[in-house]
Design a protein around this nucleic acid. Sequence first.
DNA 1: TTTCACGCACTATTTAACGTTACATGAAAC
DNA 2: GTTTCATGTAACGTTAAATAGTGCGTGAAA
Lengths: 152, 152
Amino acid sequence: MKRDSRLSGVLHVLLHMAEQGAPMTSEQLAKAMQTHPVVIRRILGGLRDAGFVHSEKGHGGGWTIAGDLADITMRDVYDAIGQPTLMAMSNRTEAPGCMVEQAVNAALDASFHDAEALLLARFTEVTLAQLAADFHERMAARSPKAPEQHHG
Amino acid sequence: MKRDSRLSGVLHVLLHMAEQGAPMTSEQLAKAMQTHPVVIRRILGGLRDAGFVHSEKGHGGGWTIAGDLADITMRDVYDAIGQPTLMAMSNRTEAPGCMVEQAVNAALDASFHDAEALLLARFTEVTLAQLAADFHERMAARSPKAPEQHHG
DNA sequence: TTTCACGCACTATTTAACGTTACATGAAAC
DNA sequence: GTTTCATGTAACGTTAAATAGTGCGTGAAA
């Protein structure tokens, strides 16, 4: 299948929303992400259900961040979009009768489990506030005079 | 995309070859793996080029393990099949102009890099000899009287 | 010379993410 | 109240990557 870029995409969108301050429509967000507004709604739907963002219909509507950026970790966002598969590899058969394959599965599963645990732990360590701070540093380093043009 | 099960499959096949002692045809191996002989040849081709297995044409031909099981790690096998992608997720854009996305990518890349390094380290720790030993333990635990029927 | 088994190029199928269309719903502007 | 804006969601189309399958060539043993 295609590689999954939902987490990357939704984090990007969330930071743009945070920078904006005012509600952003899914059409605006889709333009920044070079995708379709429906895709934005679909992904942000999970975050809305989890309480991280708020959506409003009609004139002046759109999406806003619901809470404090320091209270949302990348792990929270990962969970909110449905905990997509992390590892690209899997066992050929999950519950094999063949004991050779059982031995292989056991070894692979142990490795995958450790790697997934580490990855999720790293996700938990990073808040949206930290990502926003990193972004501001990059802006300051590049063009101290025009802080508003963050989307090139 | 589909999940990648080549590593799982090839390890399974290698252990069956080791148990057999005599050359096994890709048709026999395909039967044990419930797949197509061409798939077996394709995957084992990489291992042949890396020197881990040997193939012979004609009557009495087939595949044999070339060296000592204790000298082949899961990492070696992973490399021999072409180092397939480990992580199911990727960045939406690799070299974005948008600095928000650069900040997101940096955070995600760091996490993915750590997780991949751990996974490869785990692979390096496990030899085919260890997998074979684990298999024999499972066989002994299940049916001490019929050690030859390892494929159920 | 027939049979067996690998080698390889090429095509088809499958799977899950991603893209798109269509229409319903609700809120603000007029 | 009607129009316009924007989300909500179902249904369908598209695409990328692994896997499956076909066909033909090659070399070795019977």
